[in-house]
Amino acid sequence: MIQFDCHAHVYETVTAIDGARYIPARPAPLADWLANQKAHGLRGGVIVQVSFLGTDNSELCAALTKLDRSRFAGVGVVPLDVGDEELDRLLHSGIRGVRWNLVRGANMPDLDATLTQRFLAKLRDRDLHLELHLEGPRLAPILPALADQGVNLVVDHFGLPSEPDPSNDPMIKAVSDLPDRNGLYFKFAAHYRTSFDTSPHADELLELLPDDHVVWGSDWPHTQHENSTGYSDVWSRNISWRELSDGTAARRLYDIG
């Protein structure tokens, strides 16, 4: 049974960084997210740093101070050169992973570069996972290298597949070709960010991945799609995976349960 909403954005104000590619029209208050959880029988979840706030995780950390750490956690955004002190502060605040939002042509960090390797070592030392938001065709060729970095990798939004038929999809093929998938997790969230039905891809991923390597997320408040969907709509779409048990993955990735 799905117990957690492992992908939502919470912000009490809308103050975007310079160059933000999308700025929502209204806040997404913590109280509203919690009300949605209660209405749908969920017991906790994960707040993910929203892109328009960049590496300023203060809204995220402020929300976490109001929540039960045994049921709630966060995923932050930090620069590659983040210092140990700052990363430890975020860890203490309840952040259990960091996110690379690389869609729309954002540069992929060079995995062989010294700076990137130092960054990944800091994640390993703290048992923090790496969350990746990247289109499937760009993810596919680098997935083997990413999966070989010694950190748990969480792929957002069904992996943003590019082909309606999963048997022709490069992202699905890349997952299938991995010799070891034990460090790979997927979030089933935001079906509307793909132009076709992702249910066949989800079914394929459930076959390919080890047990307990999938979590569900509402993607609330559905940025860029606020006027076309809502919490109840995305919840109703997970009926195929309603019996999916997310407790083990939630403990491994977020230390909640």
Rank of each mutant, 00 (worst) to 15 (best):
I2Y: 06
D5G: 03
C6D: 05
C6W: 04
V10F: 00
V10C: 02
Y11F: 15
T13N: 09
A16F: 01
G19H: 06
A20T: 10
R21C: 08
P24L: 03
P24Q: 01
R26L: 10
P27H: 11
A28S: 15
A28V: 05
L30S: 04
A31G: 01
D32H: 03
W33P: 02
A35T: 11
N36H: 06
A39N: 09
A39S: 06
G41S: 13
V50S: 11
S51M: 06
F52N: 07
L53R: 04
G54D: 07
L60S: 04
L64A: 04
T65Y: 03
A73Q: 00
G74P: 01
G74W: 00
V78R: 03
P79Q: 14
D81S: 11
E86K: 12
E86F: 07
L87T: 04
I95P: 00
I95V: 15
I95T: 05
R96V: 01
G97C: 06
W100Y: 13
N101A: 10
N101V: 11
V103E: 15
R104M: 13
G105F: 13
A106C: 10
A106E: 12
N107L: 13
M108A: 12
D110P: 09
L111D: 08
L115Y: 09
T116K: 10
Q117E: 14
L120A: 11
A121N: 10
L123W: 04
D125N: 15
R126S: 12
L130C: 07
L134H: 08
L134A: 03
R138K: 11
A140L: 05
I142W: 10
L146E: 00
Q149A: 08
V154D: 05
V154R: 02
V155G: 03
H157L: 03
H157V: 01
F158S: 02
G159Q: 03
P161K: 04
P161S: 07
E163C: 05
P166I: 13
P166D: 05
P170L: 10
K173Y: 05
D177P: 05
D177E: 09
R181L: 12
N182A: 12
L184F: 09
Y185T: 07
F186Y: 04
F188W: 05
A189D: 04
S195D: 15
D197N: 13
S199W: 09
P200D: 08
P200Q: 07
H201C: 07
A202R: 03
A202E: 01
D203C: 07
E204T: 15
L205D: 03
E207W: 08
L208G: 06
L209I: 08
P210E: 11
D211C: 06
H213T: 07
H213K: 06
V215H: 07
W216C: 01
S218T: 09
S218E: 08
W220L: 00
H222E: 00
H225Y: 12
H225V: 02
H225W: 13
E226G: 08
N227P: 00
G230N: 15
Y231N: 01
S232L: 08
V234E: 07
V234I: 15
R237M: 11
N238R: 14
I239W: 09
W241T: 10
E243C: 11
D246I: 04
R252K: 14
D255W: 12
